[in-house]
Design a protein around this nucleic acid. Structure first.
Lengths: 236, 236
DNA sequence: TGAATAGTGTCTTTCAGACAATATGCC
DNA sequence: GGCATATTGTCTGAAAGACACTATTCA
C-alpha cells in the first residue's frame, strides 16, 4: 500500500520512518436562507461523536489535491459544484480526534441557496442547515473552526467582492444591501451604502427588473472578478 | 507502528483504509538585516533537489502540534525560541514533492536579527540569509510559499502590530519608520507617519536614548499586544 | 559651525456618517 | 390614493496626504 510513497529512486528518504497522521478536509458551507446566514451540518452516524452535529468533511484521497478533496465533499453533501471556495486554516492539535492523529484542513464555501439539492450522505444520518446565531453543540473542535470561518467571512465581505458569489449574476442594490445586513447583523444606511458601492466602480448597469411586486429596481452585474479587493468600510 | 491510530475501541473507523500522506511544516523566517528584509534558506544536502536552496522545515512528529513542530524546526535552525509565529497556508497538490504525497503547512516567523545564532542542521549543507529582493531558485513549490508569506507580511504590517516583534522592547519612532520603509520598499513622510502612529495610541513613552551618535531620540514601548489590530494606512 | 538625526504644524482634499424627501409601480 | 419599495443630495467632522523648517547632540 505504501509503495508509491517511494518514487523515482530516493531510497534514503524514508517518509515512513515517521508515523503518518491522517489528513482530512472539513467544510464550512455558508448560504443565505430565510434572511439569515446559515451553515450546513451533518449528524454523525458513526463513532466518535455519534449523533452529534459536525461539519461535513472527510479524509483526503491520495490522488486529489486539498481543494479537489474539498470540492468532492461539497458535491457529495450538496450536489453543488460551482461555488466560491477558500482554504481557511489547518487544525492539527494532537488530541483533537479521539481516534488518533488527524490533521484537518478547513475550507469555507459560499453557495447560493437556490443551487442546493441536499443529498443524504453515507456517513451522515441527517443533514441540515443551521442559523449561525443558533447552532447546536458540535463534534471535535468544529466549533472553533466555525468561529474562525465566520470571522474570515465577515472580513472578506468588507475587503473583497466575495459577497457577490451569493447573488445571481444580475441583482439589485437592495439585494446586495440585505446580504451585507444579514452577514453583519446590522442595519446599514441605504444612501451611504449605495454611494459607497457605486463609488468603487465594480458594477455594470443591466436591465430593470421585471415582475417586481412594486417599483422594480435597477439591476446590476459585477464587472470585476469575485474575490477582487475592495474596501467597504467599517461594517464590522 | 500504526497501532496507536486505533484508540479507545473504534474498530469501525479504519483510518488506515486510506493511504496516508506525509505532513510537513515549512517556515518562512523573516528578519531585518543590512537595512533589508531577509529570509532564511537552507541548502539541501539530500535528494530531491540536492544542492538547491529551500525553506527550512521537516516532517511533523506524532506527538507535537503543528505549531510545536514549527517552533522546533525554528529552534533547530536558528536557536531562537521566542518569536512571532503565524500559520500561513497549507499546500497539498499531488505532485509537489517527487518523493510522494507530502502536504506542507507553512508558517511565517519574525525574529530580531540580534537573537539569531545560526546552527548547521543535519540535513542542510549550508544555511544563509537572503534578501527578499534577490532570491535564488528554490526547491519544490517553495517560491510560491515565500511569495504568499511576503504578501501576508505586508498585509499584517498594515493591519496589526506585528512589526513591533522585529524591534527591541524600547525603540524610537525613527527605527519604527525605517522598518516600515524596508518592508514596503517605499519612502514614507516622517510627519504623517508619526502623526498616524501616535494618533492610534498604542505607544508608551519611555526614557530618552543614551549614547546616540547625534540627537538622541525619544524611546517608546508598545502598550498593546503584538498582533493586535490597528490600521496604518495605505502603505501597500 | 557643520553634520547628522529628531521633532513639529498647517492647509487641502477626500471620505465616512448622519439625515429625509421624492419617485415608481401595483393594487 | 394607499402601499411597498427604489432612488437621490447635503452637511459636518475626521483623517489622509502634501509640504519645510527648527531642535538637539556631537565632533
Amino acid at each position: 500500500m505504501k509503495n508509491n510513497q517511494y518514487k523515482q529512486g530516493y531510497p534514503l528518504v524514508k517518509l515512513d520512518d515517521f508515523e503518518q497522521p491522517s489528513v482530512a478536509v472539513d467544510l464550512v458551507i455558508f448560504t443565505i436562507k430565510e434572511r439569515s446566514l446559515q451553515t450546513l451540518l451533518i449528524k454523525r452516524g458513526i463513532v466518535p461523536f455519534k449523533e452529534s452535529w459536525a461539519l461535513p468533511g472527510g479524509f483526503i484521497k491520495m490522488n486529489e489535491s486539498l481543494e479537489e478533496s474539498a470540492l468532492r465533499e461539497l458535491e457529495e453533501e450538496t450536489g453543488v459544484n460551482k461555488v466560491y471556495l477558500e482554504q481557511l486554516y489547518t487544525f492539527g492539535n494532537v488530541g483533537r480526534d479521539p481516534r488518533g492523529r488527524v490533521i484537518t484542513v478547513s475550507y469555507m464555501a459560499l453557495i447560493n441557496s437556490k443551487d442546493i439539492k441536499l443529498k443524504a450522505s453515507t456517513d451522515a444520518s441527517d443533514v441540515n442547515w443551521f442559523r449561525i446565531s443558533n447552532l447546536p453543540t458540535l463534534a471535535f473542535d468544529h466549533k472553533k473552526i466555525l468561529n474562525y470561518a465566520v470571522k474570515r467571512l465577515k472580513w472578506k465581505f468588507e475587503y473583497t467582492t466575495i459577497a457577490f458569489s451569493l447573488l445571481h449574476s444580475r441583482f439589485s442594490l437592495g439585494e446586495l444591501q440585505r446580504l451585507y445586513e444579514i452577514v453583519f447583523d446590522k442595519e446599514i444606511d441605504k444612501r451611504n451604502f449605495r454611494k459607497k458601492i457605486l463609488s468603487i466602480d465594480i458594477l455594470k448597469t443591466e436591465s430593470i427588473m421585471k415582475d417586481a411586486p412594486y417599483r422594480p429596481p435597477q439591476l446590476y452585474s459585477l464587472k470585476v472578478k469575485i474575490g477582487d479587493s475592495i474596501n467597504i468600510n467599517n461594517l464590522a
